[in-house]
Design a protein around this nucleic acid. Structure first.
Length: 279
DNA sequence: TGACAGGAAAATA
DNA sequence: TATTTTCCTGTC
């Protein structure tokens, strides 16, 4: 792995395992991430990130963009502290998580599959789908499957879809692949925030939480504020916030402004292990 | 075995 | 418009 990027206050591990992405493989100390028509292999050593790609080659610009390495944690933390002084205790200065800029089409399906599901189950479903419909890529690290394109998804048979065991999510998935393709999702990604949210909510299986996950993790909207059960608990503990998910989402965006998405990561870590000193 | 985890949509008030 | 109920798979 001769390609090297200098990084600061960055944790590849945390970035890839914090729940924003689901199809990442760890093998012999390297992380392997199928992305578009590439398989990206990465390894971090201190302040150096090493990478190489197979299939379509990925350059430094693309890798940095994917991993959110153009975001500046120092700036973001200052911004958040200035806006919400009480929040200082929640901010973990060395967390090293960056918000990724993933593929929007894949991210819609990923978070549709995430509804009422834990991470290992989501991963299993997405891997099963990729193995059935995605292209195989041979690498020195083994064989990996790219995430399928919409044209591949339309070719899925009934029993193949059934084999994914999507449960009540199955009808959403069928409707989605019938009505949407990459182009349409890319179009949505170009809209301003409010319209983006509105268009995403039109997709069956996409409610407010999933819509904000999609915007944050694949559509460059760092002010998105996905509220799951943990964030709901956190917002209640920290700010006494109560009420519907919609209300908490609004409150989070008003409180944390341009970087609500990063604030959300801090709250998640704080409420799950930060307050007790975990990692 | 039964309790529980996890969001969206439909039903209901 | 706001609250309750139903949906499915999997783990412990």
């Amino acid at each position: 792995m001769q390609n090297k990027i200098a990084v600061k206050n960055f944790s590849l591990k945390r970035t890839l395992t914090c729940g924003q992405t689901f199809r990442v493989f760890k093998k012999n100390g390297v992380y392997i991430y199928p992305y578009g028509n590439s398989v990206l292999v990465m390894r971090q050593e201190g302040d150096s990130l090493f990478y190489e790609s197979f299939g379509e080659k990925l350059g430094e610009r693309e890798v940095k963009n994917l991993l959110g390495l153009n975001d500046d944690p120092d700036f973001i933390n200052k911004y958040l502290k200035k806006r919400v002084p009480d929040f200082s205790k929640v901010i973990n200065e060395t967390l090293g998580i960056r918000i990724m800029r993933q593929n929007p089409f894949e991210t819609v399906i990923s978070f549709m599959f995430s509804v009422q599901s834990a991470i290992p189950l989501i991963t299993r479903r997405l891997n099963a789908l990729s193995e059935i419909a995605g292209e195989t890529m041979q690498t020195p690290y083994g064989e990996f499957y790219l995430f399928p394109e919409s044209k591949d998804l339309r070719k899925l048979t009934d029993s193949e879809i059934k084999s994914l065991k999507l449960g009540f999510r199955e009808k959403w998935f069928r409707e989605f692949i019938e009505h949407y393709d990459e182009k349409e999702i890319e179009q949505i990604a170009r809209l301003p925030f409010a319209e983006k949210e509105k268009e995403l909510l039109k997709i069956k299986g996409v409610g407010i939480k999933v819509a904000h996950c999609i915007m944050l993790f694949s559509m460059n909207e760092l002010s998105a504020f996905p509220v799951d059960v943990w964030i709901k608990r956190g917002m209640k503990t920290l700010f006494g916030a109560d009420g519907s998910v919609k209300k908490i989402t609004q409150l989070g965006r008003e409180l944390f402004g341009d970087f609500a998405g990063y604030a959300q990561e801090y709250i998640y870590y704080y409420i799950r292990n930060g307050a007790e000193g975990g990692t």
